[in-house]
């Protein structure tokens, strides 16, 4: 019985993550439009897009292509289940951050396998750019995660949230300021927002990995991006803003972070890959290292 209850709850969390992610993307498009002084699509535009995509026919390049793209989305959904969302914490005992990060790598591996098995060189170039960029932003992010680990002397997110309870002042955001800034920039890279979206550059490599995705595969890609937004911002909230008493505050906090990323996205042009990686290894890494030194000494 317990298993069945947990199953329902995890489906709920999965659905929540998809809908919140799509909502964030819709609102994001609205805000970017507002920045461009135009009206922009209705906030639920992304829901419409997803439904349209799933109703369109599509072409596929073999079972590795289908398997890969489905794996991409479902691995992220599996990772979301372990994320403590507000007061819903399905598996408190083993919500270890490293495990969630590695499950996300499973999603990237799945998507990468699917996309590059299509045989379109644009797709593989996109993937190689995305992976190089991942190498870029993972370095400061790792520095921050492990300094939080050592600061809170624990590896599981539930304990980290518990360590930050009680008022705004002892949020990690305040106690580890440099770490938060470095993580914020790394988040920009993780979400694939504008300065770091060289992987899906429509002009240079015909929208990179998505070049061969049509119909429902593009739908899966969009779902993966949505769940990815929810997951990454969710991790940041749990790490730095002390989780949330209930789901709505959690979503609002997530939106705060996403909002910053949106503003940066609307303005900055796109980096070249090596510029992006070397940027990530200059200032954010420096901040992360300073934070680590502070924590260790």
């Amino acid at each position: 019985m317990m298993f069945f209850l947990k199953l329902i709850q995890s489906i709920g969390v999965g659905a929540l993550s998809i809908s919140v992610g799509l909502l964030f993307m819709g609102i994001g498009r609205k805000i970017t439009a507002r920045i461009h002084r135009r009206y922009g699509p209705p906030a639920i535009q992304n829901f419409i897009d997803v439904f349209k995509l799933f109703s369109k026919n599509s072409i596929s390049h073999g079972f590795a292509y289908d398997l890969g793209i489905i794996a991409g989305t479902s691995a992220l959904l599996a990772a979301v289940v372990f994320l403590p969302v507000g007061q819903i914490n399905l598996f408190p005992a083993n919500s270890s951050l490293i495990m969630i990060l590695y499950l996300m790598t499973m999603a990237y591996l799945g998507m990468a396998m699917g996309v590059s098995s299509s045989g379109n060189p644009n797709a593989t170039i996109g993937i190689s750019r995305a992976l190089t960029m991942m190498m870029g932003y993972k370095v400061p992010f790792a520095a921050v995660i492990f300094s939080v680990y050592i600061f809170a002397r624990t590896g599981s997110l539930t304990n980290i949230i518990a360590a930050q309870s009680g008022g705004l002042l002892n949020w990690n955001m305040i106690r580890l300021p440099f770490g938060f800034i470095a993580a914020e920039i790394a988040l920009q890279g993780m979400l694939g927002e504008k300065p770091f979206d060289m992987a899906i550059a429509p002009a240079e490599i015909a929208s990179g990995p998505m070049v061969e995705m049509s119909g429902k595969y593009l739908g899966f890609g969009m779902l993966q991006h949505a769940v990815g937004i929810f997951l990454e911002t969710g991790i940041m909230v749990n790490l730095f803003m002390g989780g949330a008493p209930n789901v709505w505050i959690f979503v609002i906090k997530q939106f705060e972070l996403f909002f910053i990323a949106l503003l940066v996205n609307a303005i900055l042009p796109r980096f070249r890959v090596e510029e992006g990686v070397s940027f990530m290894w200059k200032i954010p890494l420096l901040l992360g290292v300073i934070q680590a030194l502070i924590v260790v000494l």
């Binding site: 439009a33 699509p41 049509s214």
Partner: peptide, 22 residues
Amino acid sequence: MTSRWDMERFGVVPMATPRQAD
């Protein structure tokens, strides 16, 4: 596409490849 007439209001977005386009 841009702010004066903004076709995105109608849910129309320019796409890079025929696979994704309607």
